[in-house]
Every structure is written in C-alpha cells, then in structure tokens.
C-alpha cells in the first residue's frame, strides 16, 4: 500500500548519495532475484529502490594487463558466461555463479547480489573465496577493499556499513598451472539450494601443489575459508594422504545445523567428499587435462 521510489542513477557517486540519503529505507537492486522475492513475501518493505544496473563500473567485466579480472557487482551470470575469457581463466567461479537459479534467473542474478544476500548457502561465494577475490566497497566515506571471506558475518548479515554498496570483485592474476572448481550437493539435479558447497583453487607445478585455497559453503553460519585444508594440499601431489587430510580439515571446519535441507552429520561428511572431488577437478584444470 506504500509507494516505492525507484531510482536508477547513472553513476556510483549518485547511487551512494541516494542510498545514504534514504537512511536505511532503501534497498539496492541488481538482478532483484532475491530482493523482489523478499518484497513479495513481505520480508522487506523498502521505501526506495536504487537500481545499479545503469552504472557502467558495476555492470562491466574487465581483464587487466596483469591478468586480473574486474567483475562488477551487478554483472549477471548469463553475461559473465558469454565473456570470451573469464570462464577460461576462472571456470570454477563461473560454474558456481551459473548454478544460481534457473536459466531465466541467470539472465538477472549477479554474484554481487548473491554475496550481499548473506546466505551461507550462496553458490558463488565459496568459489570466490577459493579464488581469493577482493571486494571493492563504496560508501559515504569513500572506497575500501576487503577479502571476500571477511564480508559475510552471519546468515543474512554482512560487514557492509550503513550506506555502503558493493561495487565489484577483483580476481587476482592467475599464475600458469592454475585451475579452480566448485561442487555443491543438492538432492535434485537442478533448481535447488546447496546442502554443502565446496570451492577449490589450485596452482600446480610438476604435479605438486604450490598454492591452494578452499572455500566451504552451507556448513556454518557463514561461508568459510578453510586454511587448514589448503595448507595440507600445498606441497602435496594430491595423493590420498593429502586429500584425506584436507577432507578431514573441511569436516572439522564445519559448524552446520540440522535443518530441512540437511543434517549436521550429513553436511559434515559431504564437505569432505566434495573437497576431494572438487580438488580432483581443479587439479585436472590446473594441469590442462580438462
């Protein structure tokens, strides 16, 4: 019954000003695939909606000379999939983003929205954590950056301060011999939400892991960076002992709940299984086998 003000500013500065001016009554709209559902369910009643899709910085994908990628927070999964280079460099991140929703939803849904929604089960986040993505955030006090794993602080809660907007992701330059992968467990084959999700990024040389990062989703109140799992992979040839140790570290990192989507016991076991499977795919990609 209340009127909603809709703004679509052409610049980030204007968006930040309008967002601050609304004093908490505004919501940011990228694809809207979470926001519009929340509004329909009566969970949020924004007085102002600020559409960020007119802001070039937030809808662009750029590969820098050093090989790093900029992905604007409002870039949709479908647009990212069509980029000629991104999926070749970051296949695991792309497959994670492309798991959000259906084909129709992919035309709208963005990694930025997926992250800001704050769900521990968000598919793109463990892959971004594994990738070592760094966020750019803009607010009334200017810009700041933070690693993606520092962003979520609890279910539905993020470390964005009042008036701040997520601008986009910087994915670091990729050394030769790198590969990443994301796997999630869902009971169905499509149209479902992760019971557990694991992202793995590896760099390998001569069959030996030289760098590794592991992101774990839907197994704790926030998506986690599992440093202990990465640590045992580095220096290994991904032999059974290393994989078992990394899998055990993944299970140990789990602080899940029993809910309608899975049990504590099940999630803890599945995190270990997915770590091994995702590491195998990432290794194949790192070594040019897939």
């Amino acid at each position: 019954m209340t009127d909603i003000r809709y703004l679509a500013p052409p610049t980030l500065d204007e968006a930040v000003r309008a967002f601050a001016a609304a004093q908490g009554a505004a919501r940011i709209l990228a694809g809207g695939t979470d926001l519009l559902v929340q509004m329909r369910n009566g969970m949020v009643h924004p007085g102002t909606i600020i559409d960020i899709k007119k802001i070039p910085e937030m809808t662009s994908i750029t590969e820098a000379a050093d090989g790093s990628f900029w992905v604007g927070a409002a870039v949709s999964g479908a647009v990212l999939a069509e980029h000629p280079r991104f999926g070749k460099v970051w296949p695991g991140v792309l497959e994670a983003i492309n798991l959000i929703g259906s084909t129709q939803v992919q035309g709208r849904a963005s990694a930025g929205g997926n992250l800001c929604h704050g769900s521990p089960a968000a598919d793109s986040v463990p892959a971004m954590v594994a990738a070592g993505a760094v966020l750019t955030i803009a607010g009334p006090n200017g810009r700041r950056t933070m690693p993606v794993e520092a962003f979520p602080v609890g279910p539905g809660r993020t470390s964005l301060a009042a008036g701040e907007i997520l601008v986009g992701f910087t994915l670091p330059a990729r050394p030769a011999g790198s590969g990443d992968a994301y796997l999630r467990m869902i009971p169905r084959t499509e149209m479902d939400i992760a019971v557990v999700g694991v992202g793995v990024s590896l760099t390998m040389a001569g069959g030996v892991v030289t760098a590794a990062r592991v992101g774990l989703g839907a197994a704790a109140p926030t998506v986690l960076l599992v440093a202990d799992a990465a640590k045992v992979l580095v220096g290994s040839k991904l032999d059974d002992a290393a994989l078992n140790a990394a899998a055990a570290a993944c299970s140990a990192a789990c602080k899940p709940i029993d809910d309608k989507r899975g049990t504590i016991v099940y999630r803890t076991k599945v995190a270990a299984v997915l770590l091994k499977r995702a590491a195998a795919i990432a290794a194949d990609r790192a070594q040019g086998r897939a």
């Binding site: 169905r188 149209m191 479902d192």
Partner: peptide
C-alpha cells in the same frame, strides 16, 4: 517448491 522437493 524449493524445499518441498518434487523431481524436476
């Protein structure tokens, strides 16, 4: 339909 899991 998300959490009442009919086959797709």
């Amino acid at each position: 339909f998300l959490d009442y899991r009919m086959p797709v």
